[in-house]
């Protein structure tokens, strides 16, 4: 059922933050098409190790598309060309024999390259820390059924909350903007009654932090939506824009 292919990989190698970085070419021969993209990199790394060379550093963890750790730009698209698929879930049967594949890190000023394909996405954490939460302390919660929530809103909130924080939106955006990530978090919380109390402060602070991190501006190209492995809609950006407008008017 499975067969093997040969690939030529152009992979970004960068020793550390200060290194300029360059592409290097690797042959990946006899690759089983049932492998995932990351398993292919594993195989390449095993071979490199045996040759006494340093393997390619890349982030990965759960390998089932939920932790958001893996990311990389494959042939010019974050997570590769399949819609709503993370890199770890992309399998090699979607590539052709003798294909040349270019693998680059997520590129953005706000995501400095740490090594090879590994980038520093702590900017996302700082954005969440600036206001992406409901300030409820442990033990302070009322009984869960005290406030019913419209099912439709709960579903929309879940759609937005599905974000895995992988950074594909930033990588895909022509301006390296983080609006989809921030919009998703603002929307998730704003759609729930518990999120109303701090809504205005939250959106103001999160946007301020986003700007501080050096992300670009949104130009409504909607590339983020197309690249998002969880299919998060740009409607979340619109919702954030509205919230922000209202928050600024009443400031």
């Amino acid at each position: 059922m499975s067969n093997t292919i040969n690939l030529t990989l152009h992979i970004w190698r960068q020793k550390n933050l200060n290194d300029k970085g360059r592409f290097e070419v690797y042959k990946a021969a006899d690759i089983d098409t049932d492998m995932s993209f990351l398993e292919m990199l594993d195989v390449v790394n095993e071979r490199l190790t045996k040759e006494g060379k340093e393997p390619i550093a890349f982030d990965h963890d759960c390998r089932e598309g939920i932790c958001g750790m893996c990311a990389g730009v494959v042939n010019g698209r974050p997570h590769g060309h399949l819609p709503q698929t993370t890199l770890c879930q992309l399998h090699l049967r979607h590539f052709k024999d003798n294909e040349t594949i270019v693998i680059e890190p997520l590129r953005s000023k706000a995501f400095p390259v740490v090594k090879d394909l590994v980038v520093d996405r702590s900017a996302f954490d700082r954005i969440i820390a600036s206001g992406g939460f409901i300030s409820v302390k442990t033990g302070a919660a009322p009984e869960a059924h005290t406030v019913p929530i419209r099912r439709e809103n709960a579903e929309l909130a879940m759609d937005a909350a599905a974000c895995i924080g992988c950074g594909a939106c930033v990588a895909a955006c022509p301006n390296a903007s983080a609006m989809l990530f921030v919009g998703a978090k603002v929307s998730h919380i704003k759609l729930l009654p518990q999120g109303q109390i701090e809504a205005q402060e939250r959106v103001r602070k999160m946007v301020a932090q986003m700007d501080k991190e050096g992300f670009g501006n949104c130009s409504n190209a909607y590339a983020c939506e197309a690249a998002c492995p969880k299919g998060i809609s740009v409607s979340t950006i619109a919702r954030m824009n509205k919230e922000y407008f209202a928050a600024k008017l009443t400031e």
Binding site: N75, E104, R107, S108, A172, N175, A176, S177, N217, Y222
Partner: peptide, 20 residues
């Protein structure tokens, strides 16, 4: 500002998104 946000350009780049 947008130009500043990506100091190193991609070698290969596919334009995706409805309004790209």
């Amino acid at each position: 500002e947008n130009r500043q946000a990506r100091p190193v350009a991609y070698r290969q780049w596919q334009m995706i998104g409805e309004h790209s």
